[in-house]
Computed example of a mutant assay.
Amino acid sequence: MHSITPASDAPPPSRVVRVLGGLSVTCAGVRLVVPPGSRRLLAHLALHPAGVDRRAAAGILWPAVGDGRAAGNLRSALWRLQQVGCPLVEAEQTVLRLRDDVEVDLRHLEAWATRVLAGAPEPADLAVDPGPIAQLELLPGWYDDWLLAARERLQLRLLHALEALSRLLREAGRPAAAVEAVHVAVLAEPLRESGQRALIEAHQAAGDWVAARRQYDAFRRMLRREVGVEPSAELTAVATAHG
């Protein structure tokens, strides 16, 4: 995540919850052991910075048991989480949330994507390594229903952001970096026409018209083979244009 967070003179955060690539917690640089029964609660709170309703969270995290048992499981998970030796959760009567001084890696990534997609990046946003971004996965190996939609949304958002990053790099006069940024997105989802178009345009911006046409021809063959359709007329027009 260091490549996504802009450089700063501020001291490193004392409490960090990471959900990208797996769940982990560090406090003052020391990695904490999160009790097994509290891991899902901590992850759920990390995904909801505004906080969650206690009753709703209990039902989401323990859907296979009754309301009373789910509420008991939530209380137990919360109590164990409060015994890890580092305050992480702010518990109100009806709402649970992570404390304001707890940083979550996902929020840095979301903020980066928001700036890039809005076309208003900070200078450091254009210097990130696109490879690690494309490989980021939200809590891999977890298959809870409440998590699957969030993981899919994040993956789609990252693909959009990498395509937008490529366009911004082209506009900044860095076509080679633009090719690299969108290439990792195309490798992740080769049938997305928006990614293929961004890659073709990046090749063209770099003056490599042969690579641009080769990319289009390869995409056309793959689309015919896998889906049985042709590329859009708009993409064909872009790919067959001449510099």
Rank of each mutant, 00 (worst) to 15 (best):
R115I: 11
R115W: 04
R115Q: 10
A118F: 07
A118M: 01
G119P: 04
P121D: 01
E122F: 00
A124R: 11
D125R: 01
L126Q: 05
L126C: 08
A127M: 06
A127G: 05
A127K: 11
A127Y: 01
V128P: 03
D129N: 14
D129Q: 12
G131C: 04
P132E: 07
P132R: 13
A134H: 09
L136E: 13
L136C: 02
L139F: 09
L139P: 09
L139S: 07
W142L: 03
D144Q: 08
D145C: 00
D145G: 08
W146I: 04
L147S: 05
L148A: 14
A149M: 12
A149R: 14
A150K: 15
A150H: 14
A150Q: 15
R151E: 13
E152H: 15
R153Q: 12
R153N: 02
Q155D: 13
Q155W: 12
R157Q: 15
L158E: 07
L158T: 14
L159H: 06
H160D: 15
H160T: 09
H160Y: 10
L162W: 08
E163A: 11
A164H: 06
R167W: 09
L168I: 04
R170M: 11
E171G: 01
E171V: 03
G173K: 09
P175H: 06
A176I: 03
A176L: 11
A176Q: 15
A177S: 11
A177T: 05
V179W: 05
A181N: 13
A185D: 05
A185P: 02
A185W: 13
V186W: 00
V186I: 00
L187K: 07
L187D: 10
A188G: 02
E189Q: 10
E189F: 04
L191S: 02
R192K: 04
R192A: 14
R192T: 01
E193H: 04
S194Q: 14
G195C: 13
Q196M: 01
L199R: 10
L199G: 05
E201Y: 05
E201F: 03
A202D: 06
A202Y: 02
Q204R: 15
A205M: 07
A205I: 04
D208L: 10
W209S: 01
V210S: 08
A211R: 15
A211Q: 15
A211T: 13
A211Y: 14
R213E: 11
R214E: 10
Y216R: 08
D217Q: 12
A218M: 03
A218N: 03
R220H: 10
R220K: 14
